[in-house]
Amino acid sequence: MSLPSAIFFSKFNSFFDNSYEFSYNVTPLTMRKVKLLWNRIPDQLKRLLIPVILVIGLFIAMRHLFVPSDFGKYGHYRASAVEEVASKEIKYSGHRVCEECHDDIVEIKKNSYHRNVACEVCHGPAAAHTQDPEGNQLLAPTGRGYCPLCHEYLPSRPTGFPQIVSESHNPMRACISCHDPHDPKPPTVPKECEACHADIARAKALSHHVYLSCTQCHETPPEHKVRPREFRPKKPNNREFCGTCHSKDAPSPKEIPRVDMATHGERYMCWQCHYPHLPEVH
């Protein structure tokens, strides 16, 4: 055994001898037994004990030193992380704050189609503006680029949502020269239905029904063009309506296809199998 380690181990052993002397409440007999047991442990294991204790001690010390004090307060995470996320700065102030000052706009928007479109959709994040209205002026898009984000015709948009084809819809003119964005009524009531129902118009264009006007099937109150969702067009509700052109004895031109209304399609309504705007398909 090398010298330093020999000293270390002799101290180690004497430590145990001393502890025997100091342990008043342990009888000498049990202490001797423990000592006997200790001596029976092979020398290798005793030596290995040192690195093992070192590693475990290091681990415990590190846990005490490096684990954040609020870790595990609510769950297996740093409790202050919640507050850190929650304290992030707000950039979009929300329309309620805008309405506190701009009551003139509120008045215009109140009954308009855009009443549910929040101010910041067009004007951008306004939190800075609410803090310092003069220093942080907000802008609004004025060109033809912004409104089509919502209103350009796309077949994926829900039916009835007002859409235009910007190539043909008053090209070169800014949207806001005709439409007040806070109350975007059309300047003139749309003459044609396809102004709003472009997808139907497209389907119909491919069909023989292209020659039928919309109102031939849809009896439409004139108010529909101004308040479309409150005054809805009617739809045919019986087979006989289609039969006025397509039944065997209808007084319509000869080239129109005919069916025997009594046997064709049994109990189904015509439009349960045929799409009236494009009946040629399936």
Binding site: K91, Y92, E120, V121, P125, L149, C150, S156, R157, P158
Partner: peptide, 13 residues
């Protein structure tokens, strides 16, 4: 309607 204003505002906010 696929205007993407949500995705845009989210990035800014």
């Amino acid at each position: 309607i696929g205007c993407g204003r949500c995705a845009d505002a989210c990035k800014k906010e």
